[in-house]
Amino acid sequence: MLKMNNIKKVFRTEVVETHALRDFSLNVDEGEFVAVTGPSGSGKTTFLNIAGLLETFTGGEYFLDGVDVKGLNDNQRSKLRNEKIGFIFQSFNLIPDLNLFDNVDVPLRYRAMNAKERKERIENALETVGLANRMKHIPSQLSGGQQQRVAIARALAGSPRFLLADEPTGNLDSEMAESVMSLLEDINQKGTTIIMVTHDPKLALRTPRSIAVKDGLVSEVVRKEAVSEANENVAAFA
């Protein structure tokens, strides 16, 4: 599904070269739910941007669903994002001037899709996140958790193969975070590949696979079982 080999990303200013990613390699299979953790500045946002085709990279290879991303121009990448990837952002990024229906409609508008189909998809997506009855509300009338659920509905409406979530619970309290997390797990169960960037180790523990990024490298690839064992060990010693 997603295959990165030795990806490099260098930010250059006049005086400094910053290596945000160096030789970053990762393979994610169809249907996986992967958590990416790491401290601030480790490069996880850069990874997410590159994975989501929001940014280009300086070196290495990246295949998304078998497509070599490197040779694509801006329009082609827009199309790929639109059709294959769903985004969930930490700060929701709903468009404040539009109601929920129109917000979920945004990505669908960029596809050749007739009005009837769009309507169906929007209603289904909002149904899935439990907000079908609030379609005419604008984002500021909702709580943070509800807004994030709208953002998830927006990500789902285009039935992407691949969901990228950036700290999806970062701006939410624990109760809301839990409901968002279980929603994501449901979605994953239905077959959507999910990569979730988070700095919260507890969340990372809930996914079947989690990787840690440090200094622009995939420093460890840890299976969930291993982590829990390790944690148990720590607990045993405590």
Partner: peptide, 10 residues
């Protein structure tokens, strides 16, 4: 930026 992320072309 969000619209672009969601697939809008330039």
């Amino acid at each position: 930026g969000t619209r672009r992320a969601l697939g809008a072309r330039k």
